[in-house]
C-alpha cells in the first residue's frame, strides 16, 4: 500500500489521506482500511467511485505499469467560455491532467494495454484529449499485439468541446475496430456511472463487457427520460443488474474478484 499512498499523496498534495465517508451509511473509514477493502464500505457494502490510481494498484502486477501520453492536455478548441478555468480546477481537484490514464502493464503476468477513466476529472467526460489518448492506446495495442482492458466511467461527451467531443466517439470506434480486426481482445469494465456518448460508443464495443454491481449504465439521462416521457422510472432502471437482465453485459463481477476474473479471461484468450 505504501507505494500507492505515495502516488496519491503526490497527486492530491495531501501528506496523509483523510478517512473516507460513506455516502450511503455515513461510516467513517480510515484510508488504509478503505484501500484494503477495495474502496467498498466495510459497514454497508456500498461501492465508492475508484480513482484511476487506486484501480491501477488493485489491478496490475506491481511495478509493471508504463503510462503513455501522460502530459497530453486539453486546449479550448471552440473557445468555450470559462472552460480553461474549469480545466485548471479539475486538474487541481484530481491531480490528473485529463479524465483518463493510459498505458501498458501486466495482469497476472500477461501484457496488456490499459485505459482507466477517472470521474474526479470533469466526471470523466470525453473531449479531444480523452478521445485521443484512448485512440492512441488502441493503436499502440494493435501495433504491439496486446489485448486492451478499459475501466470506464464517464458522464458522456464533453459539452465544452462541442462537435470535437462528439466526433471522438467515431474516432475511438475506428481504433477499436482496427484492434478487433487484428484478432485482439478488448474487455470493457463498466463502472458507476457509464452514460451518454460513452455507452453509445466504446463502452458497448467490448468483446466482453463486465459491469460492477449496481453501476449506472445507460444512454439517456434518467431526469431527461422522466421529463420527456412523464413516466416514472422502474426500480433498478439502468443499473448493472438491469443491463444484465436485458442482455447488454456479459457478467457482473464484484470488485474484490475483478482482477482474478480479468486474469482468467486474458489467459483463456491466449493462443
Amino acid at each position: 500500500m505504501s507505494t500507492l499512498k505515495t502516488i496519491l499523496n503526490t497527486i492530491t498534495g495531501n501528506v496523509e489521506q483523510p478517512p473516507r465517508i460513506c455516502k450511503k451509511c455515513n461510516a467513517e473509514i480510515p484510508y488504509e482500511d478503505y484501500l484494503a477493502n477495495h474502496c467498498i464500505c466495510p459497514e454497508c457494502g456500498a461501492y465508492f467511485r475508484m480513482r484511476a490510481v487506486e484501480r491501477l494498484d488493485a489491478t496490475v502486477d506491481k511495478g509493471t505499469f508504463q503510462e503513455i501520453d501522460r502530459k497530453l492536455k486539453s486546449k479550448n478548441p471552440i473557445d468555450f467560455p470559462d472552460y480553461k478555468e474549469k480545466l485548471e480546477k479539475a486538474e487541481k481537484a484530481s491531480g490528473l491532467t485529463e479524465g483518463v490514464v493510459c498505458g501498458t502493464a501486466k495482469i497476472d503476468g500477461i501484457d496488456c494495454g490499459l485505459f482507466i477513466m477517472d470521474s474526479a476529472f470533469m466526471m470523466g467526460s470525453m473531449g479531444t484529449v480523452v478521445g485521443e489518448k484512448i485512440t492512441r492506446l488502441f493503436e499502440k495495442a494493435t501495433a504491439l499485439g496486446l489485448p486492451v482492458i478499459g475501466f470506464i466511467t464517464s458522464g458522456g461527451a464533453r459539452m465544452q468541446e462541442g462537435i470535437f467531443s462528439l466526433m471522438q466517439m467515431a474516432k475511438v470506434s475506428g481504433a477499436v475496430k482496427r484492434h478487433s480486426e487484428a484478432g485482439l481482445l478488448y474487455i470493457a469494465v463498466l463502472t458507476d456511472p457509464t452514460t451518454g456518448g460513452i455507452t453509445a460508443s466504446f463502452a458497448m464495443q467490448g468483446d466482453i463487457i463486465i459491469a460492477e454491481p449496481k453501476a449506472l449504465i445507460g444512454f439517456a439521462g434518467q431526469r431527461v427520460i422522466e421529463q420527456t416521457t412523464g413516466e416514472k422510472l422502474p426500480a433498478g432502471f439502468q443499473r448493472a443488474e438491469f443491463q444484465l437482465e436485458h442482455g447488454f453485459v456479459d457478467l457482473i463481477e464484484e470488485r474484490p474478484r475483478m482482477t482474478y476474473t480479468l486474469a482468467k479471461l486474458l489467459k483463456l484468450h491466449q493462443a
Binding site: S173, M204, H246
Partner: peptide, 26 residues
C-alpha cells in the same frame, strides 16, 4: 436526437448507436 425513453433503453439504445459507429467505420 435518439429517442429517449424507458423502452429504448431496455432495447439497447446505446448499443445500437455504438454498433453503427463501429460497423460504419469498416
Amino acid at each position: 436526437g435518439a429517442y429517449c425513453g424507458i423502452e429504448a433503453e431496455k432495447r439497447g439504445q446505446g448499443l445500437a448507436i455504438a454498433e453503427n459507429l463501429y460497423e460504419m467505420m469498416g
